[in-house]
């Protein structure tokens, strides 16, 4: 998979709720898991026109506690459906697990990153190494990338794809460890 995203920055503040802000709650209640169904509703609570403005490779840059609230996966599947990356100052633990399980490339723990960007800036982010470049403002940052074992889950395509991969290993008599 491609770990380097090059595209426009879409900046958001702190405390975006996974239900409501990032994705309408009804999709969680309906257990909708198809990124194609979810993509027209991404960021419906804060910018209903967002799905029409973004292009694959663009990067959401968010403040603290992105995806707070009851940990529902649908918002992350909506981001995935647009082919966007995510860089956040922090993501609460339940949503962190969902972002991995959705198979979304992201960086978190990126202190102060919202101070380095404005919406519309040209960004280049390597989600494998944590290298973050704001080409518009000539800013470079080295953030902590995800643990390689979590990158492996994202590389496999998320939780269920990774689980199928582990099962295939078990069936062929190998260890299923990662």
């Amino acid at each position: 998979m491609e770990w380097v995203y090059k595209g426009k920055c879409w900046k958001f503040g702190d405390n975006l709720g996974i239900d409501g802000d990032v994705m309408p709650l009804r999709f969680a209640l309906e257990r909708e898991l198809d990124p194609e169904v979810l993509r027209p509703f991404l960021m419906a609570g804060v910018d209903p026109d967002f799905p029409n403005k973004v292009s694959p490779g663009d990067i959401i840059v968010a403040g603290k506690r992105f995806g707070q609230g009851n940990p529902h996966i649908q918002g992350f599947l909506g981001i995935l459906g647009h082919g966007l990356g995510l860089v956040a100052e922090s993501i609460p633990r339940g949503s962190f697990r969902n972002a991995i399980n959705a198979g979304l490339p992201f960086l978190t723990g990126c202190d102060g990153v919202t101070g380095d960007v404005e919406t519309g800036d040209d960004l280049e982010v390597n989600f494998q190494t944590g290298e973050f470049k704001n080409l518009t403002r000539d800013i470079m940052r080295d953030f902590q990338p995800l643990d390689p074992q979590l990158q492996a889950i994202i590389e496999a395509g998320g939780w269920s794809a990774n689980l199928e991969k582990r099962l295939a290993k078990l069936r062929s008599g190998e260890s299923a460890m990662t």
């Binding site: 074992q149 939780w159 582990r166 099962l167």
Partner: peptide, 13 residues
């Protein structure tokens, strides 16, 4: 729900 993975594969991350 990830207990399903543990039941099938013996562990989860």
């Amino acid at each position: 729900i990830e207990i399903t993975e543990v039941l099938a594969c013996g562990s989860a991350w």
